[in-house]
Amino acid sequence: MDWSTVQLWVGALLTLMIFSFLYKDNPFYKFAEHLFVGVSAAYWMVQGFWQQIVPNLLAKLAPGSFENIIEAARGQQPELVYIIPLILGLILLTRLIPSIAWFSRWSMAFIIGYTAGSNLPRYLVSDFIKQVEKTLALPLVATHADNWLQWIMYSVSNLVVFGGVICGLVYFYFSKEHTGAFGRASRAGIWVLMVAFGASFGYTVMARISLLIGRLEFLGSWIRSFT
C-alpha cells in the first residue's frame, strides 16, 4: 500500500466520520472533531511562529542568526525599531502572571486603537464614499436611449437603484423614530435588503452545493479504488 492510498483512506474515513454528525452526535464524530481541533491548533501555532515571529521579528532583530533560514535576512543589519513590537508582545504575555496581568491591556489597547485608526480612512472610502459616488452619478431618468422601450427600462432600473439606496440608508438611520413617511421608507429599505439577501442566498447555496459535489467526488474516487 503506497502513501497516496493511505492518504485517500484517512481522508475518506474522516469525511465519513464528520458526515455522521448529520445523523446524530456519536463517538466517530467526536474523534474526528478532537483530531481536527488538535491538529489544526498545533498547525496554526507552528505557522504563527515560522511565518510571523521568525521572519517579521526575530530575523529583523538578529538577521545574522537567521540568515540560514530566512533568505531575506542575509547581509541585513539589525533593525532596532523592532524592539517596540517585541516589548508589546512580551507585555501581552503578562496575562500569565496574575499579579501584573493588567499590564497586558496596554498591548491590547495598542492593537485595537491602531487597527481602528488605520482602518477608518480605508473603510470610509471603500464602504461609504465610493458607494455614494456611484449612486449620485445615476440620472433619475435615462438621458440616452435608442428607443422608448430601452428608455423605460433604463429609467426604471435607475429609479430602483436610486430609491433602494435612499430607503436602505433610511433603515440604518438610528437617531430618528421610524414613523410616518420615514417609517414607510424604512420598511421599503428592509424589503430592498431582503431581496438582495435572497439573491445572495441562492448564489451562495449554489457555491456550497458545488463544494458538496467535490467532496462526494472524492468519496467516489475512494470507492473506485476498491476495484
Binding site: 455614494v132 440620472p139 433619475l140 431618468v141 435612499i166 438611520y173 437617531s175
Partner: peptide, 26 residues
Amino acid sequence: LKGQDFGKGVAMVSIFVGGILTTIEG
C-alpha cells in the same frame, strides 16, 4: 451613533441632489 447618522444624512442629500443634477445635465 448620532454623528454617524449625520454622515448618512449628508450622503442621502448628496445622492438626491446629485441624481437630479446628473439628470438635468444629461
